[in-house]
Amino acid sequence: MTDASMTRAERRRARRIRRFDNPWLNPKLFWGIGLLLGIVVLGILGRVFWDPELVFVGSGIPKLPPPGFENLRGQAGTFTNPLGTEGSGRDMLALIIIGAPNSLFVGLLASLIGMSIGIFLGFTSGFVGGRTDDVIRVLSDVMITIPPLLILVVFQSAFGDVSLTMMALLIAGFVWQSPTRLIRAQVLSMKQSGYVQMARLSGASTWHIMFKEMLPNLVPYLFGSFIANVTTSIVTAVGLEVLGLGPQRIPTLGRTIYEAINAGALIQNLWWWWGIPTLLLAVMFIGLLLINLGLDEVSNPRLRKLKL
């Protein structure tokens, strides 16, 4: 138990373990955040070092492959378009630089709005109880059963062209239910806990109890729920875009895939057209998944493994 009773090897091992003692410093979280930051950095540096004007139709030769490959017409790729061009001559690299952060933005914004609604409704429901609780609970339970894509397809076809923010708002209407339920459940159990009773004894206001005593303990859950929501929102957004809905004039990864499918990129073997956006989406989801797993370790100490 004391340092003196340990052998050198044991001490060294303990030191190595201690380095991972802070749950926030786990490799999964690092890698996940790294991947997502990579996409953001791509968007920023890309605008500086590459010409974003190249996203417009006809800025290059259509259907040009990346350098080192040939398309069906026998044209070889050049370094003018390092990732090739798509069907109407737009540069793939520029499309990604503009498109990938856009998809991430929609996901983050929708999730942020959804979480805010969720926190508000969850706390209200858990704290106020009674009739209010019934209404909020039934509402979120009903909403959770409705497939968002179905409703959104109808909405978006009615709206026609929408902005990214508008799309995020629409999606946010379908991602508030699970945080609401999660927070309500946590608030209900925390309300009975000793430290909340102690705070009441200390003459704390409801406001203080909610935000100073309860909320900090919810942080890991909130983060986890937030990331899960970002994933859902991106999936929904991309799903709509691939169906040809969503923003018509702003380049997004989903829309690029939609156009590739529409132009028959699959049978023409224009793999870079649909492949590169798909790869980026995959990177994004893997990043989000890793963050979620990492956060799981933070909120659930049992998952922390000792690497001996």
């Binding site: 806990s193 009773q197 705070a199 004894l201 003459g203």
Partner: peptide, 19 residues
């Protein structure tokens, strides 16, 4: 509240783990 205070059964639950 100032004049009536309490000591509860479970000393583990009485402290907010965050602080």
């Amino acid at each position: 509240r100032k004049q009536v205070q309490a000591v509860f059964q479970d000393p583990y639950a009485c402290f907010n783990p965050f602080y």
